[in-house]
Amino acid sequence: MADPMRIRAVARDGVVNVKVLMSHEMETGQRKDGAGQLVPAHFIQSVSATHNGKVVLSAQWGPAVSKNPFLEFNFKAGQKGERISVTWVDNKGEQRTDEATIN
């Protein structure tokens, strides 16, 4: 199981700024290991963030997103104390969901 995401959500003037740091290898499938064998691709393909059951951001990623991906976005109508949830799914079907409280 992958390590938890670090999610920081801060509300200011009705706009919530969300920063997410995920823990994932994001292996491209083009790199070779010490023995000259290709390392199979292993990367996050889809990400979705929800607030009060409503999707506030969804993303599709390729292997060109950096290792331990970072994501930042802003959405309106979020209040302090409410929860935001982020889920990723990778190309091997592994997934992880984490939640954070808006500050």
């Binding site: 706009v15 993303a59 599709q60 950096s66 991906p69 930042e72 976005f73 959405f75």
Partner: peptide, 18 residues
């Protein structure tokens, strides 16, 4: 990467790429 922004989400995204 490609991001879908529903109404209510601002047109700004930041990420890191290779």
């Amino acid at each position: 990467a490609s991001f879908e922004l529903p109404s209510g989400t601002e047109g700004t995204v930041t990420t890191r790429v290779k």
